[in-house]
C-alpha cells in the first residue's frame, strides 16, 4: 500500500472532484433557475475543496505532481472516490438524494477531521465543513419537500433512494488506510460515524414520507480503487479530454 496519508487525501479530493463534476453536468438544465444557481454553487464549493485536498495530496506525495496532474492524469483504477458519487445524475430526484446521502456523511466526517492532529487537514476540514453544513441543509430540505410533495415526486424520490441505497454502506467501511488515519489522530473511524448518519437519514426520510430499504447490502470498491463502476471511465473521458489530448498545453 502506498502512503496511507496520500491515499486518504486522494479519497477526500476524489469524492469532491467526482461529485462536483457530476453536479456541474446540470448546468443550464435544472428544473428552475433557483436550482441552476444552487447546483452551480454546490459544484463550485466541491471543486474548491478538491483544489485544497488534491493540492495537499500532491504536496504529501512529494513527486512533483500538482492537484491538476492528480485530477486530469490518473485513470479509473487510481481514483479513490466512493461509488456513490460517481453514479450518474439520473433525474433531479436521484441527484438530490445522492447529495443528501453524501452530505449526511460529510458533515460528521468533516466535524471529526476538523480536530485532526495535522493542522493542514484540520484547516481544509474547517473550511469545507461550513460549506457541507449548508449543502446538507439544502439537500435535506429538498428531499423532504419532494418526498412529501405530490404522489409523483414521492414515487420518484423513493425510486432514487432504492437505487442509491446499496452505495451508502461504503462510506462506513473501514480498511487499512482508515486504521492508519485513526491511529495517527487524523480521522475518526468511519464506522463510528454511522450512528449520526443513521439519525439524520432516518429523521429526514421519515419527514419525507420515504421508506428506508430493508437491506444492508453495500457495494464496495470505490474508495479502495479496486472496482469502480463503469460510469467513472466515461466521466473521466470527458473531464480529462483536453489536458490529455494536448499534454504540452498550458491553460
Amino acid at each position: 500500500m502506498s502512503d496511507p496519508l496520500f491515499e486518504f487525501l486522494l479519497r477526500q479530493g476524489d469524492n469532491t472532484l467526482i461529485l462536483g463534476h457530476r453536479i456541474s453536468e446540470w448546468c443550464g438544465i435544472a428544473p428552475a433557475v433557483e436550482e441552476d444557481i444552487a447546483l452551480a454553487n454546490t459544484a463550485l464549493d466541491l471543486i474548491g475543496q478538491t483544489q485544497m485536498w488534491l493540492g495537499l495530496a500532491a504536496e504529501v506525495e512529494g513527486a512533483g505532481r500538482s492537484a491538476d496532474d492528480l485530477a486530469f492524469h490518473r485513470d479509473v483504477w487510481d481514483f479513490r472516490n466512493l461509488l456513490l458519487v460517481e453514479q450518474p445524475n439520473g433525474d433531479f430526484g436521484h441527484t438530490i438524494m445522492r447529495q443528501f446521502l453524501f452530505d449526511a456523511f460529510q458533515v460528521p466526517h468533516l466535524t471529526a477531521l476538523h480536530n485532526a492532529s495535522d493542522d493542514r487537514i484540520a484547516g481544509i476540514a474547517a473550511k469545507s465543513l461550513k460549506e457541507a453544513q449548508y449543502h446538507l441543509e439544502r439537500s435535506r430540505e429538498t428531499v423532504i419537500a419532494l418526498g412529501d410533495g405530490t404522489e409523483e415526486s414521492n414515487r420518484r424520490m423513493q425510486a432514487a433512494l432504492d437505487r442509491l441505497w446499496p452505495y451508502a454502506g461504503e462510506m462506513f467501511l473501514r480498511d487499512g488506510v482508515d486504521d492508519a488515519m485513526h491511529e495517527s489522530g487524523i480521522a475518526a473511524d468511519p464506522a463510528s460515524l454511522r450512528a449520526t448518519w443513521d439519525d439524520t437519514v432516518q429523521t429526514t426520510l421519515g419527514e419525507a414520507m420515504l421508506t428506508i430499504p430493508d437491506s444492508d447490502f453495500a457495494q464496495q470498491g470505490g474508495k479502495s480503487g479496486k472496482r469502480h463502476s463503469e460510469h467513472l471511465g466515461h466521466l473521466l473521458a470527458t473531464m480529462q479530454f483536453l489536458p490529455r489530448s494536448y499534454p504540452d498545453a498550458r491553460w
Binding site: 472532484l17 463534476h21 456541474s24 453536468e25 448546468c27 443550464g28 438544465i29 433557475v33 441552476d36 444557481i37 452551480a40 454553487n41 459544484a43 463550485l44 471543486i47 474548491g48 478538491t50 483544489q51 488534491l54 492537484a67 491538476d68 485530477a71 486530469f72 470527458t238 473531464m239 479530454f241 483536453l242 489536458p243 498545453a249 491553460w251
Partner: peptide, 29 residues
C-alpha cells in the same frame, strides 16, 4: 448557460472549471 455548460465538464484545469462555474452561476442569477 448552455454554450458554456457545454465546456464546464471539459474545463482543462480545476481553476478554469471553478471560474466557469462561478460565471455560469452569475448568469443564472
Amino acid at each position: 448557460q448552455l454554450p458554456e455548460g457545454n465546456w464546464i465538464t471539459r474545463a482543462p484545469t480545476l481553476e478554469r472549471k471553478a471560474i466557469l462555474l462561478a460565471k455560469v452561476q452569475d448568469e443564472a442569477g
